[in-house]
Design a protein around this nucleic acid. Sequence first.
DNA 1: TTGATTTATGCAACCGGTTGCAAAAACCTC
DNA 2: GAGGTTTTTGCAACCGGTTGCATAAATCAA
Lengths: 335, 335
Amino acid sequence: MAVTLKEVAELAGVSRSAVSRSFTEGASVSARTRAKVEKAARDLGYSPNALASSLTTGRTKLIGLVSNNFHNPVFLEVFDLFTRGLQERGLRPLLVNLSDETAPEHSVRMLRQYSVDGAVVASSTLPPGFAPAFHEAGIPVVNAFGRYASDPRVHTVGIDNGACGRLAVQTFAARGYKRIAFMGGPQGATSTQDRQAGFMAELEAHPDIEASVSFAGAYSFEAGRREMQRLLQAAPAEAYFCGDDVLSIGALSALRDHGLSVPEKVGVLGLNDMEMAGWAGIDLTTIHQPIRQIVTSSIELIMAMLAEPDRYPEARVFPCRIVERSTLRPLSKAN
Amino acid sequence: MAVTLKEVAELAGVSRSAVSRSFTEGASVSARTRAKVEKAARDLGYSPNALASSLTTGRTKLIGLVSNNFHNPVFLEVFDLFTRGLQERGLRPLLVNLSDETAPEHSVRMLRQYSVDGAVVASSTLPPGFAPAFHEAGIPVVNAFGRYASDPRVHTVGIDNGACGRLAVQTFAARGYKRIAFMGGPQGATSTQDRQAGFMAELEAHPDIEASVSFAGAYSFEAGRREMQRLLQAAPAEAYFCGDDVLSIGALSALRDHGLSVPEKVGVLGLNDMEMAGWAGIDLTTIHQPIRQIVTSSIELIMAMLAEPDRYPEARVFPCRIVERSTLRPLSKAN
DNA sequence: TTGATTTATGCAACCGGTTGCAAAAACCTC
DNA sequence: GAGGTTTTTGCAACCGGTTGCATAAATCAA
């Protein structure tokens, strides 16, 4: 079915090597030969088999794009940015959905069978076993949106979740909130744990502030809504820091149903700054996570590792900032 | 770096063919040989190179997953379903983002270079040139969420957009709306065109209903909101059929800002039934598109084509149904 | 022209597997 | 234990490319 290099060689009346070289950047071919080859290739509709060549070159240009976040809308943006970025650099994303994978090693093995040149794991928590499995397979990995120093063998690009927790408290303090709350995502998520730790640490600098902590079962609208409904059975706090925008939006919906005005009665602070956070009617004050930069940097890092496989692991941490919208009251004049 | 079949063969003390056969389902190997091979493979940490084997078997188990919908949240669900479904069947999705591709043929060529066994194009409109390019390359394609008979060469799985347009009018009529409107997505989208055609056709059966038509610039919140704001400068219709849920949500936000109660003053009907449509506070009445079934069916069709390459093209059309929520007034008693 | 140098080309081996074929081994039956 | 079957095995060629090396062709200097 497919046209092969051999057929092109025959039609062009040259050796197979000549054809191969004609398609290789910087190889030694005369202009005349190349012209003949190109004409033959065009006539036959030939395009080289990337997989066959990977056999000898050792590069497939395939990059595993691994994630378990197929429910949070921010990740659509993440996938968009990753696929475009990789494509622009001639790399091909091989998508792996970890959602119902019981044994993550299977995924690593599969990626190895397909000889991916590298892998990006887009997840706040690196599944256990991934780091050693990739390491043993000799596949460069970067954990995008991952945790700083989650494993000394993998490169990480992300935000400082602890700093986000601290920033939340500072933000609340600057607006004069005295009774605040941390509403995390699933308690097992390291991102939630780190934010909580930062949140608690910063509280020590604000002895006049009282805080409570709770967790939603997932990073989802429903989970946020339900958790807020539960919290509203007792006296609510003055402001909530939710672990994620979509969680915040769920919480807002519960507050609205309960007749509590935002931000007058209760303030809400999200995290991510997903597109939806800016929608009219939501207008969520939130901590902006620099998604675009994280993705770009992850890709740069993967590229760097392709060039230099035993590059020393590093963690790249991007600062976050508050995006002022309407779910938190304005800065108190005192500050 | 990677362990090869040859090394396993040497360690196990058998020929390379024996090792190869041990890893091939249904090949003729004695239990004793297989045991020796498996032990050696385990000791060495060997796993076969899928790309190398594809060279002789002619199958890569790679499936191109092509889309340009990286902004509509429904598509995250679509990607989730596709990746899981393909993975379950031992296929690997090679993701292609068409968003900023000027020449779609490039993507087809790339997929051919990677010898994909098939491709799924998840898009309501098949990019021009795709059908012939895939056909020429001998790659089976299914256009998921595509248009019935968009091209006689490709298989299509989707809904009947014309029927959706008709259903919208019937739904409005049954609820006694007399001044209705069609708010399409981009005018160039075939999905919008087909829905409009159905909408107009059905109007003929309802001479007492007056209708108007307009288009939003994109299938997005902002576009829907802006278009509704524009429409509100004149007297609004009693009910709008929007081309997409996210468009509807934008429209709802404009209506709310304008102080028009929904569904009392103005009704809104969406299309897709994305997760967000069911969120409290949105609660959009919408036409449900059976996404899960479309994806499953697309995968089945791809599998069928792998087994039978010159299978005669077919279109699979799934019915849609109204999901009753709160943005349309209830059925009039008369009906 | 000639000889030295540079550039282009083809040969053949190789990448990591698979598979048709013929020979070898194992199993049956009598 | 002989003879016939069936199963297992290894050899060698092949899948579609790449690449080191030796040779041939082209270019250059004198």
